[in-house]
């Protein structure tokens, strides 16, 4: 029996643009079980990123219910929400968003610093991650010295270092060539097998195919 990781109940997000009320997400109902690999698909502007941001607690639903691991996120205080977020969620971005001034090693280490993990433990965890992603030789390089694929690899490693239950990936291969894309997707599939829940937004049919479930969005609605 799989546990429910999160569930959305008529979740809605509207924003005011000038005098118009624009509905970005419209009554979304969604259950995500632990261990799922979901691909969000849809044209630009359909609400994929907004949905990811809201699930990732970088943004709020304006209406409806959002439960994460049985806890009602929508009625939570900012502080608890950020705690939850720190503990369980990792992010992967299309533009990698590595910190330019930090080396590969230091980039991967950063989330642990924010979690106040002890130095010796941090070392072991980062070393582990470098090993696993086969980038030990690159640990002292800066992001600018890496190819896009390698940067994204670091991005994924950084997202994983905190041992999150859920990885949110917004077009993780959008800036990569097809070979690099494939590598990242293989990696995701592998992680998913190991039990990490993944939700990715993508334009690519082939990428979406790696997932266990595809959700199509159009104009903020699931279709």
């Amino acid at each position: 029996m799989k546990n429910t990781l999160l569930s959305l109940n008529e979740a809605t997000r509207t924003v005011n643009s000038g005098s118009n009320k624009v509905t970005l997400l419209d009554n979304i109902n969604l259950n995500v079980e632990e261990g799922e690999f979901i691909s969000l698909m849809g044209p630009s502007g359909s609400g994929k990123s907004t949905l990811l941001n809201c699930i990732g607690m970088l943004d709020n639903f304006t209406d409806g219910g959002y439960t994460f691991l049985g806890e009602p996120v929508h009625s939570m205080k900012e502080k608890n929400r950020s705690k939850l977020f720190k503990e369980y969620i990792g992010f992967v971005f299309q533009a990698y968003h590595l910190i330019d001034e930090l080396t590969v090693y230091e980039n991967i280490e950063t989330p642990l610093l924010y979690k106040n993990v002890k130095s010796s433990e941090r070392k072991a965890m980062v070393a582990d991650m470098l090993d696993r992603f086969n980038i030990v030789g690159k640990k002292d390089l800066f992001p600018i010295q890496l190819s896009g694929g390698q940067q994204q690899l670091v991005g994924v490693a950084r997202a994983l270092i905190g041992k999150p239950k859920l990885i949110l990936a917004d077009e993780p291969t959008g800036n990569l060539n097809s070979k690099q894309s494939e590598e990242i997707m293989e990696l995701f599939a592998q992680l998913n097998k190991e039990g990490v829940t993944i939700i990715q937004a993508t334009h690519s049919e082939s990428n979406a195919a790696y997932g266990s479930r595809i959700i199509n969005l159009l104009d903020g609605k699931i279709v």
Binding site: S82, F91, H97, L98, I99, P111, Y114
Partner: peptide, 16 residues
Amino acid sequence: ATDVGINKTLGASVRD
């Protein structure tokens, strides 16, 4: 701002 954003998604608080 991008730096701040990244750090926040990595778990940095306003105080950090």
